[in-house]
Design a protein around this nucleic acid. Sequence first.
DNA 1: CTGAAAGCGCTTACAG
DNA 2: CTGAAAGCGCTTACAG
Lengths: 332, 332
Amino acid sequence: MSISINDVARVAGVSKSTVSRALGGGPVSADVRARVEAAVRQTGYRPNLMARRLRSRDSGLVGMIVADIRNPFFTAAIGAVEEAAYRHDLRLVLCNTDEDPQREALYLQLMHEERISGVILAPTRATQARLEQLQLEFPMVLLDRAGAGGRYDSVVLDNAAAAAELVAGLAAQGLVRIGGLFGNTSSTALERRDGYLQAMQAAGLAPDYREVAPGAEAAAEAVAAWLAGPSRPQALVASNSLLLAGALQAVRAAGLRIPQDLALAGFDNERWTELVEPGITVIEQPVEDMGREAMELLLARLRSPQQPVRKVVMRGRCIVRGSTAVGRADPG
Amino acid sequence: MSISINDVARVAGVSKSTVSRALGGGPVSADVRARVEAAVRQTGYRPNLMARRLRSRDSGLVGMIVADIRNPFFTAAIGAVEEAAYRHDLRLVLCNTDEDPQREALYLQLMHEERISGVILAPTRATQARLEQLQLEFPMVLLDRAGAGGRYDSVVLDNAAAAAELVAGLAAQGLVRIGGLFGNTSSTALERRDGYLQAMQAAGLAPDYREVAPGAEAAAEAVAAWLAGPSRPQALVASNSLLLAGALQAVRAAGLRIPQDLALAGFDNERWTELVEPGITVIEQPVEDMGREAMELLLARLRSPQQPVRKVVMRGRCIVRGSTAVGRADPG
DNA sequence: CTGAAAGCGCTTACAG
DNA sequence: CTGAAAGCGCTTACAG
């Protein structure tokens, strides 16, 4: 049997109300406080959070639902959110949906059953569409994937601008057949595709892109077929680091040289993008800031539920490396 | 105000006991079951898990405490554990300690306060030492880091054998100054170091190793100094993928060729180890299996608390790539 | 098969 | 400052 507040009360010789107050930092006499503290030590008492939360109607829990825990972008975001939660004395319940809308729905329901204080979510497109009509009982902040919708606070990258910057850089080097490789589950990929399309049009180039499942395997397959096909691109822009890795894998397998045979650029400044040769040109996302900011938005919303919806758009940083240095010497 | 079981009972025209039974799949008449289900739909009722857990004394929660969420090994392990938890209708509470023993202690205490059903832990050495005397109220399974201790079920790699295999491979190519690079926080690193030492001795070679904080930055710094020093190694074995990446970074910065100037090998078959040129020789860990197995051990322990302690040791697979192909043509 | 009652371990008005 | 009482939303013996 577990030790309860009653045991402490008995040992300290006070009522359990008083123990509760002493533990909660309420107004108690110094003598009582000392006796309670001694009793806690003596009994090894640890409060039961289930009971505390049930009674106080505050779960002290924050949920985070991400689409792919194996994507380093999300891992880094989780780390930042966890850190922030820890600082605010909140616990983080993590859910991984593997881009499955059904699991997203299930987890959102579960969050409700947990009477969670708030949720940070990176939804699939499918879920995103239904989010607007959803009547949630807790505040939610969208991270990385927000779309145009307006009901939720969100923190995202300026995806279109970032993708456009990559394309513009390639076009400026005289490349013409610039292909795009985008995930097919996130609004983020959609926005990057739009930025790609706009930049291609601005450069007077004909777009050519593929949308694939957002993992390295699917990307490798798609790119392998693409490279073997009739309209081989001169450059490829991939919309996340997993797609980028898959693309690189296919390029290597095809025996093509980078950047002479194919220039390559993508998203997320993973360490390996600097370790391969030549290094890969990427958009670096301020992912730690994004995670922290998402938590800040959530806390602000919890404090004042009625405040206007905020959308924080962050700027990516383009890191130019050898993979796009066409016509120049490889700096690697 | 939230909808409670009382509201459902009123709408269905039965007592809340009956609602509870109907929802829990207990013995109720078909008529009542239908009415309860209709009432649930009508009211939009969702059970309050806090209350349910408090009463039933079963949290349905599994905790996972890892040292570094940014280490892909742990990310993959988390994914596998989460998947298994999901299948068994358990929720996963994730905690990240950043290799900080204080946070480990805090989280373990928290797990108790959550009345968590069980915990999967990858402890630092500091915590590991104290684990034996700890009197936990929940079962715990050690993942990846177990040491010699005997009180807990665990699933680990045969670390010494794996490290020895890497060293033997390098020694077989006539390399003499084979350096080791190990993390300074985990028993895993310790075991890999021991495997390294044994293999060096078996090969009649003088060991030379460094122990560093288990991150890429510290590794890069240490290796940079090492390479610039008087006894530059001919080969380097790194005990995880972060250290390996840091080492590679330093090698690149020093302008050395792999494997001619320096052979390189390490742990964890991250995708990038195949994408760099030459590819890096690594020990692949069956990380998904390890995560799944940890959950299996935990479930078995929950079912029969008195069963003997089990330690599952898994074998790594050595994947030989160009980074250790000294004296042969680079296969990359 | 169903309901009334007790109780899980807390916190929080309410008196004093 | 302290205690007795009520109650958070459930589940689970206990009767019937």
